[in-house]
Design a protein around this nucleic acid. Sequence first.
DNA 1: ACCTGAACACCGTTCAAGT
DNA 2: ACCTGAACACCGTTCAAGT
Lengths: 240, 240
Amino acid sequence: MTPVTSTDPDGVDTVERRLPLSRELIISAAVAFVDSHGLSALTMRGLGKELGVEAMSLYRYVNGREDLLEGIVESMVSELHLNPDTVEPLNGWQAYLQWLAHGVRRIEQEHPAVFPLIATRHPAAPWLRPPLRSLRVVEDFLSELISRGFTDESAIAAYRAFSSFLLGHLLLEAAARTAESDIVDSLGHAEIASAGAESSITAFPQVCRLGTRLSEDHSDSEFEASLENMLDRLDRTLAH
Amino acid sequence: MTPVTSTDPDGVDTVERRLPLSRELIISAAVAFVDSHGLSALTMRGLGKELGVEAMSLYRYVNGREDLLEGIVESMVSELHLNPDTVEPLNGWQAYLQWLAHGVRRIEQEHPAVFPLIATRHPAAPWLRPPLRSLRVVEDFLSELISRGFTDESAIAAYRAFSSFLLGHLLLEAAARTAESDIVDSLGHAEIASAGAESSITAFPQVCRLGTRLSEDHSDSEFEASLENMLDRLDRTLAH
DNA sequence: ACCTGAACACCGTTCAAGT
DNA sequence: ACCTGAACACCGTTCAAGT
């Protein structure tokens, strides 16, 4: 029997070995693992080691790797409803969509390395559009809008526009955020350099001139402005 | 020596073995492979077999799997400028952005299974935003807009908004398109069914009621309308 | 009941060796 | 010059066996 809390036999401090292995524990360990090591490093064997257990043990709680990834996605979206400090507002569909958008964005910001999983895993159903991968969320979305004066058609159109908006903005934001602490970053500079400093400045004058400004981060204000614009558009659709 | 065109030794008809192995040939074979078998099935060994060659031979022309994927992305975006029937228009930035948006969308529609690669591979540089992963394209974008009256800042803002828009819309469109011919499709129905027919109809009335309409495909008109809206927004930003 | 050892079929990748 | 065989270190996954 291994003790509940200890250092590795090798002397390396890893995650404490909380004994009662369970689906929830495995999934949250996987999220932490991806947060710090990236998605491509997530491996059944590696995750097992992180939990102080052999990879094969995981299969008792998780139906293979695909099921694990599905579990990660589900645990992420379910954070939307569990968050205590962000309670679903009751004053109108615009406030609701603002709340939902910021809730999803918060998840992306807390787990940028996990977000591509939410964004690109095949949806279970064609109408479950990433990043809103939950029946519960879609149901709330539709009923909120319909109860506030949207027709069926306009609620569906809003759902489509909203999910496209979130996906585009948050996926790019997540990519920018994970790139900072990545090896690929230096590769980017290498590419520019290898393109030839003198050839690139003649072939790509605008990119070179605006280089630093292109890299600036205005994601907060851009997100807010784009979201506002989208809500205005939905509002116009309603009035019309 | 294997003949240039033949059936497999096993009698199975595969891709003809064009002998002069090259980077271009390997990449285009990889694209065809992903188109028909999906991204997850693309394997160095599998691709080698498709080309009638051992996997190790590919390493002479391609710098490992990552480089192969990079090559696929590059070959896709370069189609933008090669397409004969879609010539870059000269009558204003709106026409240019329309042209560019439809060009990228065409690539997505022709290779929906490849598009996630374009969308989610780590950009080489932080300002190279998917799906516009080409220095050439970004340079054209900026110079076109700036020469038409955009300030540096507004051109950059337009670039950000444009790429977010494209990414969100096209990634969801590609997902819907590949889901049709996928195993996961039936899994979706299974999930609904396993949720319990009677429990889901009470817990998710709107989703159930709108189910068929939620699955309808209006991607053409939605794309056009959203694009139009975005161009209008950029126009307002300019006037202001 | 819960974990593991050993095994299987697959990966990407390297490199000396073949032709 | 171009391709391959054999090998290495890694995967996911299964299952009989241990405790």
